[in-house]
């Protein structure tokens, strides 16, 4: 079983660092994906994203 937390309207410039922030630390996310998906692992300048973090429960 898992739970999912979504953060809307994350600016492209913040995306990669926030993905790391969600994964690291105590009880960190097991998996973080974005909507729209990143192309070649990089956000597109000027776009905003939804981060979807999945946590084991």
């Amino acid at each position: 079983m898992a739970r999912q937390v979504r953060f809307r309207n994350v600016p492209a410039a913040d995306v990669l660092e926030r993905i790391e922030n969600l994964k690291e630390g105590q009880g960190g996310a097991t998996f973080v994906e974005t909507l729209p998906p990143l192309i070649d692992g990089q956000p597109e300048d000027g776009a905003t994203y939804t981060l979807i973090a999945t946590y084991a429960t």
């Binding site: 898992a2 739970r3 999912q4 809307r8 913040d14 429960t57």
Partner: peptide, 24 residues
């Protein structure tokens, strides 16, 4: 079935968040 709960928040990362992140 595998995802038992989904919650959604607007992104909010201001000065206090930056201080907490620096502390972390």
């Amino acid at each position: 079935q595998k995802i038992e709960r989904i919650v959604e928040y607007p992104y909010s990362f201001g000065n206090i968040s930056k201080r907490i992140l620096k502390y972390r």
